[in-house]
Design a protein around this nucleic acid. Structure first.
Lengths: 166, 166
DNA sequence: TTACATTTCTTTAGGCTTCAAGCAATTGGC
DNA sequence: GCCAATTGCTTGAAGCCTAAAGAAATGTAA
């Protein structure tokens, strides 16, 4: 604590460089891994990462979910999902119908073929990820999980704070 | 170690779920923070994140760099940078000229106005980042830096391995 | 009921991004 | 010198993405 001549606490201009460097490193890691996954998906299955993602969400449930659910889970805009789903329905991976109880709602789910294809891709995908992280010990993985959970919480809090101001 | 009836080592089907969960959490953190930064840049300065990024790269050097340098540092495609730079030159933030010694090379740098505007944005940007990570202790930050460095190395190694196969 | 707000999804405009192909300049053998 | 390979960048096609506006259905409350 620094005190000025009148013995009041004074704010020192803090250094925020560490956090910035941390953010840049986080971004580098994600970009690197995402690019690697994107490339392998294209090479191996001729599919794009944006097409893979909604299928991954839908594979976690048996009876489909709404467009809003998918867009929230993927953290992308609604309009984006509309287009992605359109193409995935077109290609036969997804099935789409209007909800019986609320005609605004579109329920989408994997077709049988879509789920089968996704499962094949997901199995390899998981091995790639495991390979990408292979230098990390189990302890590293646990510790990283913990710190990223903390980061996620902190980021959400900051986002919340801004949302309330607006 | 598991041995089968003939006393040879046997591979157990390993569980790779932890790494997958780690990757998803990493991705969530990045998406969350990126969205937050994007939103604040737009609100506060009416600028997009993709326009901010090349300026950040160019602010680190006094005399500009080549398009290739920017694209490598940003880890995006060459064609992408061509378009971004085009718009930033258009808006007066960047200055662009052909190299004297190699006429294929385009050297770009911040204009005086571009640098001034970037510095204003960067100062706030750093505070946002600091705010976003504010729940993390200095020790957390150091530890996360260390683990992400390890992750980066591991990912690069995996990418390298694949590049050699192709 | 009527009016208003909210929710869900689509549409539009504009910009971002990749991949692949292609052009021009340079470099490195020979 | 000459040719082939490489390097630096641009272009074109397709798809991805957001923000904002709008349409349709539902919820709420006088």
């Amino acid at each position: 604590m620094i005190l000025d001549s009148e013995t009041k606490a004074v704010e020192l201009p803090e250094d925020h460089g560490d956090e910035l460097r941390l953010w840049l490193r986080l971004l580098t890691c994600t970009t690197l891994i995402e690019g690697e996954v994107r490339g392998r998906l294209r090479e191996r299955f001729d599919v794009t990462l944006p097409r893979f993602d909604p299928m991954a969400q839908l594979d976690t449930v048996p009876d489909g979910m709404t467009l809003s659910d998918v867009s929230k889970r993927m953290m992308v805009s609604n309009g984006n999902v509309t287009g992605l789903v359109e193409r995935l329905v077109e290609s036969g991976h997804l099935d789409r119908r209007t909800s019986d109880t609320d005609r605004r709602v579109q329920v989408i789910r994997l077709t049988k073929a879509g789920r089968a294809e996704f499962r094949r891709m997901a199995a390899e995908h998981q091995l790639w990820i495991s390979d990408i992280f292979s230098d990390l010990s189990p302890k590293d993985v646990r510790e990283l999980m913990r710190l990223l959970a903390k980061t996620k919480g902190s980021a959400r809090k900051a986002a919340q704070k801004r949302a309330l101001q607006a």
